[in-house]
Nucleic acid binder design. Sequence first.
DNA 1: CGCGTTTACGTCGTTCGTAACGATA
DNA 2: TATCGTTACGAACGACGTAAACGCG
Lengths: 330, 330
Amino acid sequence: MTLTQLRYLVAIADAGLNITQAAERVFATQPGLSKQLRHLEDELGLQMFSRSGRSLEAVTPAGALVIERARKIIDEAESIRALAANMRHESTGELRIATTHTQARFVLPPAIAKLKHEFPDVNIHLMPGGDAELLELLHRDEIDMAIMSGTSSPPSGYIAVPVFDWERVIMMPNTHPLTDVGDDITLSQLADYPLVSYESATSPDSSLRKAFAAIELAPRIACTARDADLIKTYVRAGLGVGILAEMAILPEDRADLELRCIDNLLPTCTTWILVRQDRLLREYALAFISGLAPQIERKKLPRMLNPDEPDQFPAPFHWRDLHGSNCPNS
Amino acid sequence: MTLTQLRYLVAIADAGLNITQAAERVFATQPGLSKQLRHLEDELGLQMFSRSGRSLEAVTPAGALVIERARKIIDEAESIRALAANMRHESTGELRIATTHTQARFVLPPAIAKLKHEFPDVNIHLMPGGDAELLELLHRDEIDMAIMSGTSSPPSGYIAVPVFDWERVIMMPNTHPLTDVGDDITLSQLADYPLVSYESATSPDSSLRKAFAAIELAPRIACTARDADLIKTYVRAGLGVGILAEMAILPEDRADLELRCIDNLLPTCTTWILVRQDRLLREYALAFISGLAPQIERKKLPRMLNPDEPDQFPAPFHWRDLHGSNCPNS
DNA sequence: CGCGTTTACGTCGTTCGTAACGATA
DNA sequence: TATCGTTACGAACGACGTAAACGCG
């Protein structure tokens, strides 16, 4: 059993049992992986994958157990490498962040700029995606951290660093009938108009749907997008009332769009940074986290990320307390 | 970085930074380990050990972190091998148990006989030792499990399976003055005579000493031994009153020795099986555990030993409830 | 001078890539 | 026929052990 064999094994598992594709991902040749897989299976005396003909069909129960442990091993090995790089005060490397559009476009830029300033030789890769995709990337270890939001508790199985709380606001053209209602708009009034919001609003357990369901109404979602800029475009086009994150509001939006805060209508969201357990982060990744979440002391961060001694994270700030309110009616 | 390098690294650490000795333990040559250590250090770009001249002096802080993770890795690798052997229903292997003399002599024999009957091809190694040595062996991964007892909670950092509860009894020659006192002997009466007990009684935080300290007396320990048979010998020789585990009483002891139960004088002891976390046990090791601790269902055992889902262990039986009482006065 | 580490060197095993082959949809 | 996995083979590398040299107590 070698580390290489285990790395190949999980690569094959992660590539959906396609050895050729797995070989590309680990920068090796397909026969190499085939042979190493066979060697591993010979040594352990059991098949990791069930075969039909020559191609891999499914992961065997035994294989699943082995893969699970193999992941831990390569995780720890990667941690050793990261640890060594940290000890050498190496300031080059990669930082792969998967996140939603709103975070990438409106929240992360200052933190990334700061990071680039402190660590100019770090390559930052931003990967946009929906929540499920982010978790999948994190699980497959293709990213260092995922940054995502939610109204309830964060997904388990990862370390979740609370970054900040935020509210949703509504947005409509100046000419929209709802502008005459005044400052305090209700959910039932909102239910009268088509809405434009994030893709996640289509999920039946989204906080938006649940809020409407609580008063026995259902929102009419005219269209959805992952992209806050697209939502604004459709709102401007008159497709409906936009519901989006307060971070997404730019000063110039106020020129032609009417904003309203609806803090009491929808639950507060929290943005988390998700990190794999037992994965040691590079120095610059820690710097990035504490740059994004200033309530967390930089030097306490390593201990907080250690799953063995679960130090509690401090309560996050509210976005508004740091960046001011975008709400004329609050 | 290879698994071999990591194995060599922890071997060197465990051998007290003596590469030659480490080489013997891993069945390799000393230059081989030297070179692999150097390669690892070169690749990681940092020294695992500080050198003075040509010999290793101490573990560097970075080295300690690496070794810690390396241990996890070889642990997981070992688990994969064990898992594979289990899946193949292989019934050969080694079971290395470190335990105290009392357990080995009076408690384990039936369980070991049963194990040998079920798995005739398993080699069982029993290693006697004091509590500290057992923990050290367990930490160094030279044994599969440690079986030891205590009155308070078990040592942390390991999985502790409670096996059974037991009491201490006192033992003296027929001619001893205390035999006239009657059934209810008190601590202050005991304090009048020299005692013979286990080595652990010399420790200032032993439950024996603490029990005496609670009534502001100190026991006079005439002599101590790890070995219950030795304690009996010295009691027979008239050196003092023996205090030992009720499991250590044999029927023939009643012929020339007087026994008394002192359940209310000293706290109840619990015997635990200690297992390393994240270490997968072989099938026969699980069979041994459930043979020793019948209150634990065999099929629930794997889940209970998984540190991720801490299933509670059932409360252990009392020794007496399974094996009858050795006490004339109870 | 003994103990322990390093260096040097030759051998052996293993890994890896290229290329050809085979099976499958 | 395109795709994917296996087999074959040769080259290169790396690991290992033996033997000798080096420092240190």
